[in-house]
C-alpha cells in the first residue's frame, strides 16, 4: 500500500495469520458439539420440509377409510390418521408452515425490538424512560392469554381480507412477533449505551458522520451479536407459541396440518393410535431443541465478552 510504511520489512512476516471475524466465530461455534450436531438435525428437518413434497408425492388430503389409524408401515412410514390420510405427507406440509411462522415472527420481533431499542439507546432522557416503561409493561403482559384474546377478536376480519390460511398466518406472525420484541429492545438499548461512548464512534462523529450513519454503519453492526442469539431463541419460542395455538384449536384452520394442529387432532385417539401424536410432537421437540442448542452455540461464538 502506498500510504503505510511498515516499521521493518520483516514486520508482517512475524505475525500469525489473522483469522477473519467470521472464521474466528466459526472456530468458537465448532467447540460446542451439541450445537454442531443440532445444526445438522435442523438442516435435515429443513431439507425434508423443503424438498420432501418432491420425493414423497402422497397428497396430504387423500382420504382412505380402509387404511385409517394404521401404525407405521411401508405404505405410510408414519402411519395414518382417522381419515386414512398419510401423516408423513401432512407433517412435511405442516412443517413448512410451522418453521416459516417461526422465522417470520422472529423477523418481526427483531425489527420492532431493534427499532425501539435503538431509539431508546440514542435518545436517552425522557424518550428513553417512556420507551422502557412501555417495554416493561409489555414484558409483564401474559403472552398466551393476550395472544388468544387478539386472535379471538381479529380472526374473522383478517380471514375475510386475506383468505383463511393467509389471514391466520399474518395474524399469528404479527401477534407472536409483536409480543416478543421486548428482550431484543433491552439488549439493543444496553449495547447502544456502551457503544455510543466508544472512541471509534466519537472518531466517526468527528469526521462528520450524521446520526443516521453513526447508527447504521458504526453502532448497530457492533450491537448485532447478542441480537442474533436472541433472534435464534425467538424462532424456537415462536414455533412453540404457534404449535400451542394450533393445539388449543385456535390457530390454523383444520385443513392446514401444522404440527400443533396434527397433535390437536390426535389427542382424542391416544389409546388406539399413539403414533399419530408422537410423530408431530417429536418434530416440534426436535426443531425447538436444535434451535435452542444452536442459539447456545452462537452465544459462545458471538459474545465477545466470553473468552474460550
Amino acid at each position: 500500500m502506498a500510504g503505510s510504511t511498515p516499521a521493518s520489512p520483516s514486520a508482517d512476516a512475524a505475525t500469525p495469520p489473522q483469522l477473519s471475524l467470521a472464521a474466528e466465530s466459526w472456530r468458537r461455534f465448532r467447540k460446542h458439539k451439541l450445537a454442531v450436531i443440532s445444526m445438522f438435525i435442523l438442516g435435515a428437518l429443513v431439507l425434508a420440509v423443503v424438498a420432501g413434497p418432491f420425493v414423497w408425492r402422497v397428497p396430504i388430503n387423500e382420504i382412505d377409510f380402509t387404511a385409517k389409524l394404521q401404525g407405521p408401515s411401508w405404505h405410510h412410514p408414519l402411519g395414518t390418521d382417522d381419515l386414512g390420510q398419510d401423516i408423513l405427507a401432512r407433517l412435511i406440509y405442516g412443517g413448512r408452515i410451522s418453521l416459516s411462522v417461526g422465522l417470520a415472527a422472529m423477523a418481526v420481533a427483531l425489527l420492532v425490538g431493534v427499532l425501539i431499542g435503538a431509539m431508546a439507546g440514542m435518545a436517552s432522557g425522557r424518550v428513553d424512560a417512556g420507551l422502557m416503561w412501555l417495554t416493561d409493561l409489555f414484558l409483564s403482559l401474559p403472552q398466551l392469554p393476550l395472544l388468544l384474546l387478539l386472535i379471538y377478536l381479529f380472526r374473522d376480519t383478517l380471514k375475510a381480507a386475506f383468505g383463511a390460511e393467509g389471514g391466520v398466518f399474518i395474524m399469528v406472525v404479527a401477534v407472536i412477533g409483536g409480543l416478543r420484541w421486548m428482550p431484543v429492545a433491552r439488549l439493543v438499548r444496553a449495547q447502544f449505551f456502551s457503544l455510543r461512548e466508544k472512541e471509534f464512534v466519537e472518531a466517526a462523529r468527528a469526521l462528520g458522520a450524521g446520526r443516521a450513519r453513526l447508527v447504521a454503519r458504526h453502532i448497530l453492526p457492533n450491537a448485532m451479536g447478542p441480537v442474533i442469539v436472541a433472534g435464534t431463541i425467538d424462532v424456537a419460542s415462536a414455533i412453540i407459541a404457534e404449535s400451542t395455538l394450533s393445539f388449543l384449536g385456535l390457530g390454523f384452520p383444520p385443513d392446514v396440518p401444522t404440527w400443533g394442529r396434527v397433535l390437536f387432532d390426535a389427542k382424542d385417539y391416544l389409546d388406539i393410535a399413539p403414533h399419530w401424536a408422537i410423530f408431530p410432537g417429536a418434530a416440534i421437540f426436535l426443531a425447538v431443541l436444535s434451535i435452542n442448542f444452536i442459539g447456545d452455540g452462537l452465544r459462545d461464538a458471538l459474545d465477545p465478552r466470553r473468552v474460550i
Binding site: F247, L263, P274, I278, G281, V288, N292
Partner: peptide, 18 residues
C-alpha cells in the same frame, strides 16, 4: 435443562397421559 424447556407442555402432557 435444554431438553426440559424445549419439550412443549402440551406434548409432555400427552406423553404422560399415554
Amino acid at each position: 435443562a435444554f431438553v426440559g424447556f424445549s419439550l412443549p407442555t402440551f406434548f409432555t402432557g400427552l406423553l404422560l397421559i399415554l
